[in-house]
Simulated assay, not measured.
Amino acid sequence: MADQSAGIVFIHGAWHNHETWDHVVPILNARGIATTVFDMPGAGVNARLPASFLKRPLDSQAFATEPSPNAGVTQDERTDFVISQVRETAEKCGGKVVLAGHSLGGATVSHVVERVPELISAAVYITAFMLPPGMPPVAMIQDESMADALVPGLFAADPAAVGALRVDFRSEDPDYQARIHEAYAGDVGEEMFKKAEAHLHCDEPAQVATVPSPVTKERFGQVPRHYIHCTEDRAVTPAGQKKMIALMDEAMGNKTAVHVMATSHSPFDADPQGLAKILGDIALG
């Protein structure tokens, strides 16, 4: 086994890929922290795109009704994949690792920690879905505390009909593009946001949002957890973040360590130094 060193395994959020972490990873590596990034099943290079998305100008009716070729991706598939990454990183680092997830990636953090708590030194939720036992992400998405979230207003199809949470990141409509920008990264400059947006895929598998959180006090509850609370988030609202923290603390009978960042839903682009400082300090103990 390798000499013991700090390591962080990253889980990107819905529609994103491994490039989410491009501005954060070099800072952590410079502190001697090993990092593992990847495209989740159904994301990045693993995403399958509807044919209508690739044809421009867009046929909005076809895009609204074409079944998603990405719809078959399951939460179990994602959980198993990340566990393999955690095991590999833990072996490389010679000990437990930090598991950090953004947005909907937080759901996978919970599933993984519940399965392999012995491999996780800390679970970190970056303005993410940290859900109490039995709650699926869709219940939180529909919660009153999330009423001001901008992302559902971007959906270009009925998730139940096409099997995906579908957003047209290649839209040529300036109003729609402005709403995308505001929803995800209102505090990030246009040029940087356009580079980030180019990596987003259109179809997030809908069924992963329906799987209840599996966490228990006996397993998940024994792992230290941290929440990075982004106060200017328009995707996962500040009120929603606070509600999830309160619900989880009550369910687990212990406290989440909360770190506050005055950023949008994309702290990795808005303030990568600040995010890397929090993550690095957690990893180094």
Rank of each mutant, 00 (worst) to 15 (best):
R170G: 07
D281G: 15
I228G: 02
Q142E: 13
T36V: 12
T210H: 12
T210M: 15
S110H: 05
H229T: 05
M1F: 14
V236Q: 09
A107G: 10
A122K: 03
I11H: 06
P238K: 13
D80E: 08
F10M: 04
H259P: 07
V116S: 13
I245A: 07
T65D: 04
P137Y: 01
V82N: 00
L104F: 14
V113I: 15
S213R: 03
H12D: 03
D271Y: 02
S213Y: 03
V25D: 12
T36E: 15
P214A: 05
G189P: 00
V45W: 02
K194S: 01
P159H: 07
C230M: 06
P26W: 10
A62C: 06
A270I: 05
S145I: 08
S60K: 15
R166L: 00
M146Y: 01
A276D: 08
A235F: 12
S60C: 11
F220S: 14
R225H: 15
S103D: 10
P41E: 06
A270S: 14
T65N: 11
N46D: 10
I126Y: 05
I27K: 15
V113K: 13
G72I: 08
H201D: 08
G163R: 04
I11A: 06
G189V: 00
V45Q: 09
E144I: 12
F268V: 01
A164E: 03
A62S: 02
E197M: 05
D22L: 14
S60T: 13
G253R: 04
I126L: 03
H18V: 04
V112G: 11
V9Y: 10
P205G: 01
V258W: 01
G32P: 12
A2M: 13
A235Y: 00
G42M: 03
S52I: 09
T89R: 00
P69H: 13
A147P: 02
V116L: 10
A251M: 01
S171I: 06
M244T: 11
P212R: 11
E66A: 05
E77T: 01
A161C: 10
E218D: 15
N70S: 13
L104N: 07
D203G: 00
